[in-house]
Every structure is written in C-alpha cells, then in structure tokens.
Amino acid sequence: MIIKLMKMKNQIYKSVYSLIVGFLILSLFGTSLSMAQSKERTRLRSYFYIHDNGDREISVLLTAGRGRNMQNVSNAPISMEVDMGDSTLFLTELITDAEGSANLLVEAGYTFPADEEGITTVLASYNGNDTLRSASTDIEIKDVFLEISFDIEDSVKILTVQAKEFNNEGELIPVEELDINIGVQRLYSILPIDEIETDENGIGILEFPDDIPGDSIGLIKILARIDEHDYFGTVTKTSSVNWGIPVSYELKRLPRQLFTDEAPLWMIIGVFIALVGAWYHFFLSVYKLVKLKNEG
C-alpha cells in the first residue's frame, strides 16, 4: 500500500496545498470524525492537462474511504465552476465513470476568465449523498505553449524546446526555470530521454542521443512534457523527426529450418529417397506376383 501511495504520488499530482491540508485533517480528525458519523469520507482530486493540439482537459477523481479501503466512486455528479473572486461561473456538471473519474475537455480556442496573473481557478465539488460526504477541490490552471525545433550541428543532434506564456498584457513571454521532460513515444509508453530546464529566454537545449531506434524510415515522435506543474498542469507537445535508426519493417521470410513451416531441403530429399526406395521394392515384388498370376 505504501508503495502504491508512493507511486500515486509520483504519477498523480495533487496541488501541494490541498494535499498538505488534506493530510493534516486526515491525521488529526480523521479517526474521530469517521467514528462519529456513519457517512463515508470522500475525497476529490483534480488534474490539469494541456494536450498536443492545445486542448485542455480538467480531470477529477472521486474516492471514498481511506488507505486500504479506498474506493473509486462511480456515477457521481461533480459540478464544475470557475472561481471569479466574489462570484462563480458555472461550467457544467460531470458524472464520474466506472473508474471514478470525470473529464472536461476544453477546446484550444476557449479562453477562461482569469486573474491578473492569467491564472484561472476551477472549483470542482461533489455534494455527497446518504452514505457519502461531500467533497470539493480547486485547481489553478494556465495556458503554456511549447515549441520543439531540431538542428544538427557538426553531426550532433540538438533538440530545442521553447516555452511561452501570456503576460497580463496578452503578449507571449518566455517561461523561465521550467522543467521539461523529453521522451520518445514507444509502442506502450514514453521512453524518457532526459530532463531540461528553460533559461531566461524560455529555451531548453538537449543533445539528442544517436542510438534511438525509429520506425522503418527512422522517424521518431519526440515528446516534450511538463509534468504536474502548479498551474500549467501536465503539458504535452509532440513533434516527429527522422533522427532514429531505421528498423526494417519488412517481414523476412523465415529460413528453411526445423522450427519453420518449410522443412530443410536435405530432410525432404532424404525422406523422398527413403520412401521411393522402399516403395519401389514393394511394387517390384507386387509386379512379380502379377507375373506369377499371369503365368498360371
């Protein structure tokens, strides 16, 4: 379970504040409260993604219980609102799926109302029911734009990633000190290559390794990803380049072998000779009998 929690911590990021607060509440009052009330404690977590195409996704996960008994709550209504300071803007109501999660996709063109720093606070809340208590969470979100470019200098492959955000005047400015993970898309997952940090120009540079296999023409899909940033969330940007070692996609004919469909030639010839030799003699002796019969 500890491992599982640790893994969760690695994979799924909860905004730092609510995590600490949540833990404090849990550890201080958790036991006494749950004993006093029969209603199960619930917890809502939220995650923010910016996809390759600029679409954003807000994802919430509703769980009930704690520790080993923690369960995902399916089919629960979650209301999504934007915090506007003294009022809220209702976005929609989501229903959690079988895994207890609900997602809201926000198209790239939509602009959220934001505060002077360009940050939007989205509130997700669950009202609870007869057996489950209510829960809510908020998530701060902001757009960021990643750009990947490729260069070859003295046969060294240089990968450049530039990160930009809007300032409050609506201009794109570089983002400093942003950790960006570089990976390569593989069949099942992303193979991490390295981590880079953007400089004051919002630029991070990576010397790309030479020994990454690509597809049949050496094309590889490179991902630049910001993982679980405080308000950028998880941002993914991909770009393909033919920097990989080409892998033959040709289905080679399997050799004549014992384990393939086609037998080795010597074996076929050997069996053929043995069979022809044996049956020749059989028919020869039958022929003698035919002659014997005709003689009679």
Binding site: I12, L61, P77
Partner: peptide, 29 residues
C-alpha cells in the same frame, strides 16, 4: 480526432494506481 490522442493519455494516467470502483453514487444514475 485530435482530441482522442490527448484523451487516452489523460485517461490512462488516471486509471493507474487506483483501486477498483466499488462504491457507487446513485444520484447520477
């Protein structure tokens, strides 16, 4: 169609590490 790729990524990240969904809220039925 473009949305799909992003979706699967987000979805699969969430799916990991969580226990099975047993509890059910009927109000969203």
């Amino acid at each position: 169609n473009f949305l799909r790729n992003g979706l699967t990524m987000g979805g699969s990240m969430l799916a990991m590490g969580m226990g099975p969904a047993i509890a059910k809220d009927s109000s969203g039925e």
